[in-house]
Design a protein around this nucleic acid. Structure first.
Lengths: 196, 196
DNA sequence: GTCTATACCACGATAGAC
DNA sequence: GTCTATCGTGGTATAGAC
């Protein structure tokens, strides 16, 4: 087998560049409004060449969902070393507040993608639900570690609070809403931990 | 002036039927995915005739926003007679829970519309924000009546909780999430009222 | 006011040269 | 593997007969 790099192998990262561009443009403009040409332009790849990597637009959607899952896993992994569940939950809130300017402009990446795909009759095969589960399941584990028997309910409320405030921050183009709600959630977690 | 009804005056309600159809189809499929032909079919009006009433798709969007504002005003008016702010807030929660099956299938009508329009560079001229303000301003008034100095913050958290749980119920196609979170919000309101 | 026919354009996707 | 040219579809919007 000859050196595949010297031959016509695809430029490394081209596929990755396309997915990253798709994730960005989907987030900024929405999936339905985005054209293949938009993605190609954002990735600086000629339109026709795109089809060598992705046959349909929905293949981009699937790839972007996988990317989001990876990002979520990274955030969770970064929080993991913290000593206790309350600290970890508050670190998650802090990471949300950190992203407040993006949220105010485009909403939560996961939430706005889910909202759009949920309108489809098949909800894109339940992929958005699987993505959202990553966050909820993690939160449930933290609340359970706090000794809460209602951990499942609290995890849903926790993520719902984030999704809701992201939508409002986006609607009002006001990152300050993320800060205020983040502080409220942090106090709430402290109360729950105190009672535990 | 001759009897305008006997002459070629537009069938009464035709414009209203178009707006109602647009509201329904936008809610079910999303704005961007919906075509003028979809709206015409849902309203049982020939496609070509639609343009006599609405020149552009965005005029439909504006009309649908106005419709939503009217529905919201009706809900608020129906709650108004209740004796106290805590009762009124809980009645609002109850109205959300009542709509759980629709929310599980299509999300919150206001929220999913806002999420989609927020992706536009101009956020549709801030119309979604005005719509959302109707709810938040009302809630702020109720929390203020409860004697809460942090009424503004609580109102945002209250509406965010609803928007968030609607998105999650939609993503998981699970109306039960609305019931659980509704009960949680009701307990929360009772606590706030007790401390007031 | 109502409706048909159609202009026009943008998009997704493909064929095939290089 | 890369890219251009293009096909077919489906959408918005208009012209104009009735």
């Amino acid at each position: 087998m000859t050196d595949s790099v010297a031959q016509g192998r695809p430029k490394i990262g081209k596929r990755e560049r396309l997915v990253a561009a798709a994730a960005r443009v989907f987030y900024e403009q929405g999936v339905e409004k985005t054209t293949i040409a938009d993605i190609a332009a954002a990735a600086d790849v000629p339109v026709g060449n795109v089809y060598y990597y992705f046959k349909t637009k929905d293949q981009f959607v699937q790839a972007v969902i996988d990317t989001h899952a990876g990002v979520l896993a990274e955030i969770v992994a970064g929080i993991e070393p913290l000593p206790g569940p309350a600290e970890r939950l508050k670190a998650m809130v802090a990471s949300w507040v950190e992203q407040r300017d993006l949220a105010a402009r485009y909403g939560c990446p996961t939430g706005s993608l889910a909202a759009e795909l949920d309108k489809r009759p098949d909800a894109f095969g339940g992929e958005p639900a699987r993505l959202m589960s990553l966050l909820i399941d993690w939160a449930r584990g933290q609340f359970a570690e706090l000794g809460r028997p209602d951990a499942a309910e609290l995890a849903v409320a926790f993520v719902a609070a984030y999704q809701g405030i992201s939508l409002l921050a986006n609607t009002f183009r006001d990152p300050g809403l993320m800060v205020t709600e983040g502080a409220r959630l942090a106090r709430w977690i402290d109360e729950l931990a105190g009672r535990g």
